[in-house]
Structure formats: C-alpha cells, structure tokens
Design a protein around this nucleic acid. Structure first.
Lengths: 204, 204
DNA sequence: TACAATATGTGAACACCATTCACTTATAGG
DNA sequence: CCTATAAGTGAATGGTGTTCACATATTGTA
C-alpha cells in the first residue's frame, strides 16, 4: 500500500504534466517560449490554475533547472573511465561538459547563463561534482608524470582554467549560428586537448 | 556654417537625449530596466513619441551596443604597450578584456551575452582587432623565445584558448554575487597568467 | 447519508510590456 | 499666409506574470 492518498497522487500527476509541457516548450521554442498562458493552454487549464501547482513562473523554471542538473549528472555518470589515464579522464570530463551544452543548449542556458541562472555563489561552483572531481584527477596526473605545473601555478589554478575554458567555449558555441557550429565544435575540442598538452611535462 | 538645419539638430538632440536616458537606466537598473515607458517618462515624452526617433526598442539596444563596442575600443586604445614583451602584451590585452567586463557588466551582457547579442557577433569578435591582434603577438612571442607551443597546438589554438579563458572567466564573474567578486577577480587574473606560464618554454 | 471543510479550477481584473495608428498641434518652406 | 510636413499624443491591440473573488468538485466526518 502506498503512503500517498489518491488526491495526492492526482495532484502530483498534474504537477508533472505541467512540468512535462514546460519541458516540451523548452525543447521546441526555448526559454522565451515558456509563458504561463501557452503552458496553461497546452495542459488544458486556465492560466490561474497553474498557480495552484507552482508559486510562480520562476518556480517552474527552477524545477526545470533542477532537472537540468540531474540530466548533466546522469550524463557524467554514463561516462566510462575504465582504462583511462588521469589526463584522459580530464579530457573526457571537459568534452562531456561541452557535449552537454550543445546537446541541451536551453537547459545549459537555464542553468548557467547570466540571464536565467540564479546568481551562483563561489561555493556552489566549487562544489559542483563535475568541477570538484578535477582536483584528484589533476593530482593523479601529476603523480603519474602526465602533468607538470610551472612554479606559481597551483592545482586550483589548473582547475579554474579547465572550467573557464570549457565554459567559455560552450557559451560561445551556443550563441553561434548553425553553419559555423560544427567547425567551432571541432576547434573547441582541439583547444581543450591543447590545454592538457600545455600541462604535459616537456620531454627533454 | 553648418550643413544641418536647426530642426535636424533639434531632432538629433532629442534622439541623443533618449539614448542618454537609456544609458542611465542601463547603468542604474540593467538591461531589463529599459522599457519604452520608463524611458519615455524619463525624457518627458509619451511612449509613442519614442518611435519617432527609434524604430523599435531593439534599435535602441543596438545603439547602446554600438556604444559599448566604441567604449571597449577606447579602453583598448588607452593601453600603453611601450616597453612590453609580447607575452606581457598578451597578458595586458586579456586583463583588459576582463576589466571591461567587470567595469561595464551591462554593456558586456548587451554585447556578448547570448540573450541580448545578435548571434552573428561571435564571428565579428573573431575578426575583432583586439582578438585578431593576438596572432602576431603569439608569433612574436615564439620568435622571442617566450612562447613554445607543443606539437599539434597551432597559433589559432592558442588564440582561441585565450579567448575562451577570458570570456569564460568574465561571464562567470559577472554572474557572481558581490562579496565574492574580488576573490574571483584575483583568481581569474592569476589563471590567465598561469595560462601564459604554461606556454613558456621550460628552462632545462 | 448529509453536511461542512477543503481542494480544485475559472474569469475577470491589475499592472506591466512593445507597438501601431488616427489624431492634433507646431513648425518650415514656398 | 497657407499648405505640407514634422512632432507629439491618447487610445487601443495583443502580449506578459500574477491575484482574487467566486464556483464547483471532492474530501473527511458527524
């Protein structure tokens, strides 16, 4: 027997229905396409009914944002690191970040673009699973002799550098028009590889 | 004797007045704060009168965007490169980019953020004097023995890397809350320095 | 089973937004 | 002076998020 009443389940179901519609609009017409009225029309409710399920439009966007984070985590979890060296893992992680951005650009904007994302704190960024996981990887890379950081360059610096690189590349790629995207995608990947090459110790 | 009639000069004056008001609102309340109504109220006109001077709100934003580009060019022109080595010049240029973003965050968003900028902008940046100027600087750095790019890393890669770095850092910085900004600013600068250090040849 | 309480849903309204258009008033040139 | 054009306006259109009084449906309980 379930601990929830039928009415509770119905409530949850329509709530999810609204979220489903919002997600569909997000995919079809982007963030700007989501309006309480279009949303209501889609789920056959009146606009005011939406407010029985969500406090505000922002609450709906927040739910989608959460979904986006879960989606990105799922994409990270899907990665198979077996047999990879630390540097290869770093590369795969960065590529994955950029891949998420180009696969779900609207989610990416919602989560991280300055207009739609909530103002993030430094801590949230630092504790981001993707990003925090870089530290042990860099350390392992140094241990394995794959990475050698010059004097004055800390692991934190290297970590931030990766973050800036993939984030900058992703943001730029998203705001590019279709034709140049593929070209750019290729270049962005190469640049990230180049960054790890720069961190490799020189064979003398 | 001027080639413009008094009425033309009046017209231009009120047009500039509208632009002045828009700029003031941009500074005070950001892009979202600019509405035809608030703008009209500020210049003591009716909202419909604005349309005698600008075709649309987008036209006003476009004018501000142009202003932003001129502003950034002016900031670049102010830089004094005398006595600097190629790498120092690259550093100064990158710092300047980030400095513009944090000095005029609203202009920066208007010019480069995916929601407000035209999607064509990124191409223009690529050909932008600031950014295109990186190529000869990197070449000079290599010539001077300050820069050594690993095999498979082209000058274009290095150039893109710089761009991604400063752009990513800037975007992240302007979406951060006030308190942590200074911390972040410091770190962002250090990361950019670190990037150039990675490009330096190892002294064996 | 009947009734009161609550959950669910709606229409109309408010206060915004960009934009258009018929209209008046002021200005300029012939 | 008189007409054509420029300058400016009020009202309206269709959009936005949100609120609120109201109606209806569904509960839990006496």
């Amino acid at each position: 027997m379930s601990t929830t009443s039928p009415s509770q389940r119905r409530y949850e179901k329509t709530r999810q229905g609204i979220l489903d519609a919002a997600r569909a609009i997000l995919r079809e017409s982007g963030i700007e396409g989501i309006s309480i009225r279009t949303l209501a029309e889609r789920v056959d409710y009146s606009p005011s009914a939406i407010y029985k399920y969500f406090d505000s439009k922002e609450a709906i966007l927040a739910a989608l944002r959460e979904e986006g984070w879960r989606l990105s985590e799922a994409m990270s979890a899907e990665m198979d690191f077996t047999g990879m060296s630390p540097v290869e893992m770093i590369l795969a992680g960065g590529m994955n970040y950029m891949r998420f951005a180009r696969t779900y650009p609207e989610y990416f904007k919602l989560m991280l673009s300055s207009e739609y994302a909530e103002s993030q704190t430094m801590n949230e960024i630092f504790n981001n699973p993707d990003f925090a996981g870089l530290t042990p990887l860099i350390e392992a890379g140094i241990q394995a002799g794959q990475i050698e950081l010059p004097e004055g360059v800390s692991i934190l610096h290297a970590r931030l550098m990766m973050w800036f690189l993939v984030h900058g590349a992703s943001i730029i790629e998203i705001s590019l028009m279709g034709e140049q995207r593929e070209e750019f995608e290729q270049a962005a990947n190469e640049v990230f590889v180049a960054a790890t090459k720069l961190m490799a110790p020189k064979k003398v």
